[in-house]
Nucleic acid binder design. Structure first.
Length: 501
RNA sequence: GCGGGUGUAGCUCAGUGGCUAGAGCAUCACGUUGCCAACGUGAGGGUCGGCAGUUCGAAUCUGCUCACCCGCUCCA
């Protein structure tokens, strides 16, 4: 029952410290979430795996970490400042909210017929199309609100003087202006200090393209990678951390010679799908979906999404495909725009061939929070196992790939006497010393301790028992099979390190 | 933003004809046991989402509000 599954995952996430709602004791904040002790490890492991595979294991990619607040002109050049401001209109009849540029056109002054409240059996109403020249796309009504700007970027102000102060001082002047003039004047005042939280990390890579060429001796084909937070005022937020206003991205901008872009696009499109598989996401829950021409963003030549089948609650009751990552061919759009805006030369000169060109960009852009959620959902499993009395019982287990598991190993003394706790602590210390995140537990029955670790997704449990004192060996219990292997105490660190590599 | 649903302990949920708020699990302590969610005893933990109103009295009725879920819309 996938409907149930998401509920159980949310419950487990809260109970075990993966994901909490932001500011929960204040009643929560819309679409903001915090990662608890286990969640932060999981997310970090995913980001680290991405960084290692995309940057450290390649010669052709370098990293970058740029500021979230950038020069406001960056967003003018990239098209975000204009493109993010879609005029929205509310229908006063059926309460629909829609984009003005998507509404059906009708000549101003002509008559329009529609149903009351937009209901099929509603009373027939007649109206006149207003001077805006369009009607409601749902009910066809002409009784519409003014167009409202809805900026998808988070605006804030840079500088120690609050722009509110200047606005307060301009109140009388503003009162004399009409609505349009007032908006323009207010815009002028705010624009003096207005800056934006980035809606994507990508522009940081484009803006630093020349710096990196000049400082790193990289030449196309090469990439710049970055992870970090981005912010967008989403109209609708939903499904836990799947769509939030503040989110973390893992982006690569890969610069290539024009003409080679198609093959590099194909390369990354495939490579990125394989990455999720390699880290343990089941193949049946993954797919690549190519965008239709009409779906493509204004800058993109081609785009494909890596999608995961989330167990979200919905009408079908089965779950829903959701985007984890988009791989786009952004062409030379961004570098060209920034070159135009700044007058700087952002082309690349190839000395051997004496060719000069503005590189094309292939962009695999992944959501770190979405990936974390997908790994969590995919790891979730319930196993029917009879308990000691032979009655039906359920074992809840998170089957994380050891590389991303929050806790790599747990160390238990079978009993808390006969020097077993002391021996366990020694093994713990050796593991911690090697940077293996592990957990010590001596409370309650051993079976309970195993099951607790199953729920946290810990792949290995090391138990110190009577034989440890006699033969200097411990048991290693494997999470998925629940099989135990006996190994020497001095092999433990290497054994675990090898398994979680 | 609209429509529908939900909100009681860390989790899952009872509760009501309006009076001192409950269970199971979880957590902690002690004891016992010792390899797969054991047993006993005890303990801690609740602004009944928030604010206001009606009332002698509100978790319960009314209004507003916040958050989450579903649908529509949106997703450069």
């Amino acid at each position: 029952m996938p409907n149930d599954t998401m509920k159980k995952i949310v419950s487990l996430a809260k109970r075990r410290g993966f994901i909490f709602q932001s500011s929960e004791i204040y009643g929560g904040l819309k679409a903001c979430y915090d990662y608890g002790p286990l969640g932060v490890e999981l997310k970090r492991n995913i980001k680290d795996a991405w960084w290692r595979d995309m940057v450290h294991r390649r010669e052709d990619v370098v990293g970058l970490d740029c500021s979230i607040i950038m020069h406001p002109d960056v967003w003018k050049a990239s098209g975000h400042l204009a493109g993010f401001s879609d005029p929205l209109v509310d229908c006063k009849n059926c309460k629909e909210r829609f984009r003005a540029d998507h509404a059906p056109r009708k000549d101003a002054g002509t008559e329009t017929e529609y149903r009351e409240n937009g209901k099929q059996d509603g009373k027939k109403l007649k109206g006149v199309v207003g001077k805006q020249g369009y009607v409601c796309p749902v009910c066809g009504g002409g009784d519409l609100s003014d167009e409202r700007q809805f900026n998808l970027m988070f605006r804030t102000s840079l500088g120690s003087v609050d722009p509110m102060q200047e606005i307060a001082g301009a109140v009388e002047e503003l009162a004399k202006l009409d609505a349009k003039g007032r908006r323009e004047r207010l815009g002028e005042i705010i624009a003096k200090s207005a800056v934006y939280l980035r809606p994507e990390t990508a522009q940081g890579m484009f803006v630093n393209f020349k710096n990196i060429l000049d400082s790193s001796r990289m030449k196309p084909p090469f990439g710049i990678a970055q992870t970090g937070k981005s912010y967008r005022n989403e109209i609708t937020t939903a499904n836990l951390t799947f769509r939030t206003c503040e989110f973390e991205q893992m982006e690569l901008e890969f610069f290539v010679e024009p003409g080679t872009d198609d093959e590099w696009y194909a390369y990354w499109r495939n490579a990125r799908l394989e990455w999720y598989k390699k880290l343990g996401i089941r193949e049946k829950n993954l797919r690549l979906r190519d965008h239709e021409q009409s779906e493509l963003a204004h800058y993109a030549k081609a785009c494909a999404d890596v999608e995961y089948f989330f167990p979200f609650e919905n009408e079908s009751g089965e779950g829903e495909w959701g985007e984890l990552e988009g791989i786009a061919n952004r062409t030379d759009y961004d570098l060209k725009k920034h070159a135009e805006a700044t007058g700087k030369d952002l082309s690349y000169f190839e000395t051997e061939t004496k060719k000069r060109y503005i590189p094309y960009v292939i962009e695999p852009a992944a959501g770190a929070d979405r990936a974390t959620l997908a790994f969590l959902c995919d790891a979730y499993d319930e196993e029917a196992i009879p308990d000691q009395k032979g009655e039906d019982a359920v074992r809840t287990v998170l089957r994380f790939h050891p590389r991303i598991a929050p806790i790599k190993a747990a160390v238990f003394p079978l009993v808390k006497k006969d020097g077993l706790p002391e021996k366990s602590r020694e093994i713990m210390a050796a593991l911690l010393d090697q940077g293996v995140n592990c957990f010590y537990d001596q409370s309650g029955a051993i079976g309970r301790r195993y099951r607790r670790m199953d729920e946290a997704g810990t792949p290995f449990c090391i138990t110190v028992d009577a034989e440890t004192n006699e033969q200097n060996t411990v048991t290693v219990r494997e999470r998925d099979s629940m099989q135990q292997t006996r190994i020497g105490v001095n092999e433990v660190v290497e054994y675990i390190k090898e398994k979680v590599k």
